[in-house]
């Protein structure tokens, strides 16, 4: 198979030693079918084992390997190197604090994620013995797309609101909350809508649509945010009409 040599410029940062992130260049013999991740792994295995990055599945489903490639957020195991010239810049995902090299801090996201109650809420849990719920194909397709998020965080890197307003819970968390709201088995929409009406959630979104453009799984978080905005308003208006827990 054909090989070409490309230069990779990696962000390096070790808080034990460095005051600020710096860059380091590596020359790598690249096979024509390689993804960006293959080159980073080659650097780690064969040239500089001190390079730190996250990855696991190498099949675009575990969500670990998001990085900036020439300034754009990409899933590196899915991004073909043949689409790039002979100089490729790799940085940690934008809009997140750097832990080390290409590894970013995810703890803030994990809290946001939990705040939308991403689980089925029901007044009464059904027992296993009662069998499964019925769900029509239409009911399934109302939320299916929004359940495909792999938490790769590319959308947070692309989002102009996240960049300015770090408390914004962000596209993936909203899409997930909305996913449960749209599930015919769930009864928790009013709790989540309340959360959505708080500051730093759906109404912070400026509908830039960047999130949907970078999403490697076609989740379309921008559509979720928009629908969630609408539902949160309707839900609020209903509350005005029927103040004391009317249905």
């Amino acid at each position: 198979m054909r090989e070409v040599t490309k230069t990779f410029v990696l962000t390096r940062f070790d808080p034990d030693q460095d005051e600020a992130p710096r860059t380091q260049e590596y020359k790598v013999p690249v096979r024509e079918d390689w993804k960006v991740l293959d080159a980073i792994n080659f650097i780690k295995d064969e040239i500089d084992p001190s390079v730190s990055h996250r990855w696991s599945c190498r099949m675009a489903v575990c969500g670990s390997c998001g990085m900036m490639v020439n300034g754009e957020p990409k899933l590196t195991c899915k991004t073909a190197l043949s689409d790039y010239g002979d100089r490729v810049e790799i940085e940690p995902l934008a809009n997140f604090p750097i832990v080390r090299d290409l590894v970013v801090e995810l703890e803030g996201f994990m809290d946001k994620f939990k705040s939308v109650k991403p689980w089925i809420v029901r007044a009464k849990q059904k027992a296993a013995e009662e069998g499964t719920y019925r769900q029509s194909t239409e009911e399934l397709s109302a939320f299916k797309q929004f359940s495909m998020c792999i938490n790769c965080m590319l959308c947070y890197s692309a989002c102009p609101v996240v960049a300015n307003e770090p408390e914004f819970i962000g596209p993936a968390a909203i899409a997930l909350g909305h996913r449960y709201n749209m599930d015919s088995r769930d009864e928790g929409a009013s709790e989540r809508n309340q959360r959505f009406r708080e500051e730093g959630t759906v109404f912070s979104c400026s509908y830039a649509n960047e999130c949907s453009e970078v999403c490697p799984k076609d989740v379309d978080p921008a559509a979720a945010v928009n629908q969630a905005k609408f539902n949160a308003v309707i839900d609020w208006a209903k509350g005005l009409v029927m103040p004391k827990g009317g249905s």
Binding site: R54, S56, C57, M59, V61, C62, G63, S64, L106, M110, I150, N151
Partner: peptide, 11 residues
Amino acid sequence: KVYPMRSHTVS
């Protein structure tokens, strides 16, 4: 050793 949602069950 990884965030739970990265576990290989995912594949």
